[in-house]
Simulated assay, not measured.
Amino acid sequence: MIDTQAMPRYAAITLGSNSFNMLVAHTVGGKPTVVAKYKRKVRLAQGIGDDGVLSDEAFERGIDCLTMFAQMLDKEAVDRQHVAVIATATLRNISNAQAFKDAALPILQQPIEVISGMREAELIYQGMAATTAGSGRRLVIDIGGASTEFIVGDGNKVLFKQSLPIGCVTFNSQFFNEFPFQVLDFEAANTQVKTTLGEYADELRRLGWHGVVGASGSVQAVTELLNHRGQNTSITAEVLQHLQLEILSQDDASMLGIDGIHPERAPTFAAGVAILQALFSLLNIDKLNLSGGALREGVLQILADRVQHN
């Protein structure tokens, strides 16, 4: 019998623009097996000022979360040399990123690696491929808080990757900052997605795909809602149109009148639906399903290989 207690544990920490996540795992049969998950909606991107500086409040929210993660690393008996800390769009963009990294270092005892959008796309695809059943060419869309990654791959081969400044937190601030929401808000978001995606839309359509998977909180929010309602969890244009009508009929900005919406996901729900609607239209998507994993699972696989070869 394998003694799972004796297996070295490792942790992938991802600092997104919306959420901070930590997965703790050990290796079974050559693959990472997750033993604990921790997550907090930090919404870093909400704290970026016009001057590009992360506000003190958002800075502290981030550091408080990392302090909790550090406590959980100790609880889960993870050696700090087996921890990877990866940051994405917000820490790529803010001018006080170094101050945040300096504050985090003594807490986590591992440096934060701020990765490029292209590297993020690669890791998202690796995480999807390792955790999601299916074959053939796939389009992967990961809508984050401040950026969206687009990847087309076949098996383990990446054919296209791009990271663009489209995010549910930033779009929330831009287009859904005044209640009640209006059709014009959705149209403005759609126009922004179309402008940002630009010629990449043609390139993506030319490549084509057999299936589309979404690896993001926005996709998860819709999937959870459909699951709660006992409906098919494949997202379609019709599903998104119904959700838009529900959003527009709300009499409270909390969105909690929508059956099946998770309170944590409610603040950026409208922006996520708007982005998805735009992408369905621009890329002629028939349906989209939730990925089994994304960025943090990709990081976890790298850690598993590193621990195994130590």
Rank of each mutant, 00 (worst) to 15 (best):
D185A: 13
S135D: 10
T148A: 05
N172A: 15
T131H: 04
A133L: 08
P180K: 13
F179R: 02
I143K: 01
G145K: 09
Q192A: 10
F176H: 05
Q162N: 09
A188Q: 09
V193Q: 01
D154H: 11
V140I: 15
V193A: 02
E187R: 05
D185Y: 08
E187I: 02
N177G: 09
S147C: 09
G167Q: 11
A146D: 04
N177I: 15
G134A: 11
I143S: 03
P165D: 08
F179H: 05
G167R: 11
P180A: 15
V152Y: 06
N190L: 03
E178R: 12
S173G: 04
F181P: 00
T132P: 00
T195E: 02
F150Y: 14
D142V: 14
G134I: 14
G136L: 12
E178Q: 13
R138H: 10
Q182H: 09
I166G: 00
G145L: 10
T132L: 03
N156R: 09
G136F: 10
G153D: 12
L184G: 06
L164D: 02
Q162K: 13
N177Y: 10
A188L: 08
G134R: 08
E187M: 05
F160Y: 15
D185E: 07
D154Q: 14
L159W: 03
A133Q: 10
L139Y: 07
V183Y: 02
P180Q: 14
R137W: 12
N190V: 04
L159G: 02
C168A: 15
R138I: 14
I151P: 00
N190Y: 08
G155L: 11
V158E: 07
A130W: 06
T196Q: 01
G153Q: 12
D154Y: 09
D142S: 11
E187C: 01
V152L: 07
A188T: 10
F186Q: 03
F175S: 07
T131I: 05
I166M: 05
E187D: 07
F150S: 03
G167I: 14
Q174F: 09
V169G: 02
I143V: 14
V140E: 03
G153L: 13
Q162S: 10
K194M: 01
Q182M: 11
N177D: 14
F150T: 12
S135T: 15
L184F: 05
S173R: 12
F186P: 00
K157V: 12
I143H: 03
I151M: 04
T131C: 04
R137A: 08
L184T: 15
P165T: 14
A189R: 01
K161F: 02
R137I: 12
T132I: 08
I151A: 03
T170W: 05
E178A: 13
V183Q: 06
V152M: 06
Q182V: 14
T191F: 00
A146P: 00
T132K: 02
K194F: 01
D154A: 09
N172K: 12
D185P: 00
Q192I: 02
G144M: 11
T195K: 01
T148W: 06
P165Q: 10
A133Y: 04
I166A: 03
V193R: 01
T191V: 06
R137E: 08
N156V: 13
N177S: 14
G136E: 11
N190G: 03
I141S: 04
G144V: 14
D154P: 00
E149D: 07
T132M: 03
S147H: 11
A133F: 04
S163H: 05
K161T: 09
E178P: 00
F186I: 13
F181L: 10
S163G: 05
E187V: 02
T195L: 02
L184H: 08
N156C: 04
